[in-house]
Amino acid sequence: MNPASSHLLQQEIPLTWYLLLSATLFSLGVVGFLIKRNLITVFMSIELMLNAVNLSFVTFAHQWHMVKGQIFVFFVMMVAAAEAAVGLAIIIAVFRARATLAVDRIDLMKL
């Protein structure tokens, strides 16, 4: 390996940047949850928040060289898959009952 490429491989990034990216993505997910008015897009914002937290898990797994952090992300992915299947089935059921996807019109439980 020549010195130039080994220098490129040695270049370091502080893990803080990854954590800040994760926090920003999470906040964007919360903002999406608040401003989006379509049931499916609101659900997508929740998926965005799950992904942001997964990035934090992977970063900390790298920091402490723990394999279990990565395994936790694996479990989160599995649960997210189950959650997406059930959530989208509920959205289909709501659409059949109310014929709309606008969250402003699906407000029977609103105070």
Binding site: I13, L15, L19, A23, L34
Partner: peptide, 24 residues
């Protein structure tokens, strides 16, 4: 949202001992 983001960012920026990542 602003409070959550600023609290998390402050905690991250103040955290000691966070390492670095490199391709090697």
């Amino acid at each position: 949202v602003v409070v959550i983001l600023s609290v998390i960012a402050t905690v991250i920026l103040k955290a000691q001992g966070l390492g670095t990542a490199s391709l090697s």
